[in-house]
């Protein structure tokens, strides 16, 4: 017997204690995530965590990787390198597809409002409402009283009660944005990823949207908001992270981040 048993280097595979604590306490944990498209680094060793119940704003110039970041978290894009964990490190998101990730409790609002245009506002919420997702059982699905109540609540929250019988496609741009947020709420996700929710909104609508997102966050949902509108980000009053060339440039309160020399240089302008 010439074979020598090499002991598994178990200790080396364990993350450092500090990193491990960060991992197990985070709702969402990204570590050194890199995504390359045809040689272009959309994400460059991006690392950050989102705590349970936290709301976070993400800013950054065009091409900073904000949307790619959301694509990676929701399973639309697979990272070349890096770790993406959910639920205190229990779930590796890089191994799952969009549907599985949505079922786990990550909801996403797209940059361009995407609602089901040929369904009524009510049916849009019915389709999004947390519940049976399999095809065959849904042939015989009946709406429960609890579901009806929950939908009424969401209608109150997103202020679209009087529009419930209109087609999704007939709503104004701002109303579509709210409907989409309402659909996210109906999914009851642990984490909401919201991409530019106030693009194309009036000032009044923008303020109402900030209030809506704060309300959602206060009800225990973690929220990550990507937005360019600085007034809106200020209204949210949460921790801000500035992305640039695929990694985090600065992080902190809005005042701290906007005082950062590099952020002023690449994003805010002088």
């Amino acid at each position: 017997m010439t074979d020598i048993a090499i002991p598994e280097p178990t200790t080396a595979a364990e993350p450092a204690p500090a990193a491990k604590k960060e991992l197990t306490e985070a709702l969402l944990y990204l570590d050194a995530v890199t995504v390359t498209f045809d040689g272009f680094r959309a994400l460059n060793a991006l690392s950050f965590t989102v705590d349970p119940g936290e709301m976070r704003a993400v800013i950054g110039p065009n091409g900073a990787g904000k949307t790619t970041m959301m694509d990676v978290i929701t399973g639309k894009t697979r990272p070349d390198r890096g770790d993406v964990f959910f639920n205190g490190g229990t779930t590796d998101l890089t191994k799952l597809d969009e549907t599985q990730i949505a079922t786990l409790g990550i909801g996403r609002k797209f940059q361009k409002p995407t609602v089901f245009e040929n369904h009524t506002v009510l049916d849009n919420l019915r389709l999004a409402l947390k519940g049976q997702r399999r095809a065959l059982p849904n042939i015989f699905h009946r709406e429960s009283a609890a579901a009806r109540e929950r939908i009424d609540e969401i209608f109150e929250t997103i202020r679209l009660t009087e529009h419930r019988d209109r087609l999704g496609g007939a709503l104004s741009h701002g109303q579509k944005q709210w409907l989409e947020i309402g659909m996210l709420l109906a999914q009851d996700p642990k984490l909401l990823l919201v991409d530019e929710p106030v693009a194309g909104m009036t000032d009044a609508e923008t303020a109402q949207t900030a209030e809506l997102l704060r309300e959602i966050n206060a009800n225990g949902h973690s929220v990550v908001v990507v937005e360019h509108d600085m007034t809106f980000v200020r209204d949210l009053g949460v921790r801000v992270m500035c992305l640039h060339e695929g990694s985090v440039l600065a992080e902190g309160t809005l005042d701290q981040v906007s005082a950062n020399e590099r952020v002023i240089e690449v994003y805010l302008g002088r």
């Binding site: 969009e98 549907t99 995407t114 609602v115 049916d123 389709l127």
Partner: peptide
């Protein structure tokens, strides 16, 4: 209703968990 949703916005349907 999910079928029509798939017809009109398939990506949205996937991100909704179907």
């Amino acid at each position: 209703k999910v079928l029509v949703a798939v017809r009109d916005a398939e990506t949205r349907v996937r991100f909704t968990g179907y």
